[in-house]
Computed example of a mutant assay.
Amino acid sequence: MSPTRPTVSTWFRPRSAWLASVLVAGVLTFHAVVPNRVGRLGSLLETFLPWLGLAVPVLAGVALVRRSPIVLTTVLPPLAAWLALFGGLLLPRSDGAYDLTAVQHNVSDTNPDPAGTARTLLGADADLIALEEVTPSHAREFTAALDYPHHAVMGTVGLWSRYPLTGVRAVDIRPTGVGTDWNRGLRATAATPSGAVAVYVAHLPSVRLGPGFGTARRDESAALLGRALDAERLPDVILLGDLNSTVDDRGLDPVRAHLSAPREGLAFSWPASFPLARIDQILARDATVTRIWTLPDTGSDHVPVAARIRL
């Protein structure tokens, strides 16, 4: 005699719904305890952490199917946990007082239309524009199209500024085994009307999804960037970059130890076809990113992000 298989209604019982509810709420609240030793599962979870909020409409749908007020209450634990983590990012806010606007964009080294990309970026009326995957030919095209008075390019990263730039130098964030021709970090001092600001542009190594979540090179590069930020002597610091990491991912902890994240706005930037995460970051020290948002698609696999910053 064959064992009885669970029916669809079995999974919709209050006990099963409550189990799912508590599990999701627990993972949201205690995501930091999910281990990274096996397949970097903790980092993978934290990269897409906001999407666990989809459990709320799923549980609400289960309640409607069963017409069960008891099941409907199962939305409360994950909803409360999600709002505690991300609710503040959704609050409507005006620009308020700010001192400058910055744009961050990985333009893609196969960008077919640098001039068109530049026009999109100019729409933000930014004081600082940081770009990654800038090829030598694209660097010339972006410089001409953006027409900013000051700019600096190191390797494949560049900074265009309305304010004078001094102290421009490369920042070595090369992971082990990478040659000296790999240059994805720069640092410059921008002489803004509010005072000198250290501006960093960085492009951390990509991660790989395979057997596990391949973040070793990115994490090593993030640690090197963290050391550079720790050694920075100017109090006001802005970091613009494709960090291949969300601010929730513990792999970015060496950087987050020195910089604060935006107070509002999800601004998912990757992949451009259906953005799932913000891996393009605008972070600050002794300054506040008061608002962050995305700009229109440029044909890259990332969409640009822009931010207001109060110094």
Rank of each mutant, 00 (worst) to 15 (best):
R308Q: 14
D286N: 14
L209F: 14
R119E: 14
S21R: 03
P193K: 00
A32E: 13
F48K: 05
L72Y: 11
S43L: 03
V255F: 00
W82R: 09
A306V: 01
R218H: 08
N106Q: 02
L234S: 08
R256C: 09
T110F: 15
V197N: 09
R15T: 10
R67L: 12
L121G: 00
A139P: 07
Y148F: 15
T120H: 11
R66A: 09
P254W: 00
A202G: 02
L295D: 06
Y98A: 14
F86M: 00
T73S: 14
A145T: 06
A97I: 13
F12S: 03
D236R: 15
A126H: 05
P77S: 13
A80V: 15
S108K: 11
P296D: 02
Y148I: 06
L100F: 15
R310S: 10
G42A: 06
G265E: 00
R227M: 08
D248E: 15
T166C: 09
A145D: 09
F86L: 02
E132N: 13
L54N: 06
A130E: 05
L131Y: 06
A196H: 14
Q104Y: 04
I309Q: 07
P57W: 06
L83W: 03
L83E: 04
D248S: 14
H302S: 04
G210C: 01
F213E: 07
V305H: 00
A228N: 07
S16Y: 12
L225N: 09
W18N: 04
R217A: 15
T166A: 14
R227W: 02
P6L: 14
A55L: 05
A115T: 13
F142D: 01
G185W: 01
V75P: 13
R291Q: 13
T294A: 11
S260K: 12
V103R: 03
H258D: 07
L252G: 06
L243A: 08
L204D: 10
F274A: 13
Q281L: 11
S221L: 06
D230Q: 13
G185E: 07
A124G: 06
G226C: 04
S94H: 11
V65N: 05
P114G: 08
S43P: 05
P114K: 07
F30T: 07
G39E: 04
S269I: 03
H138S: 12
L100A: 10
F268L: 04
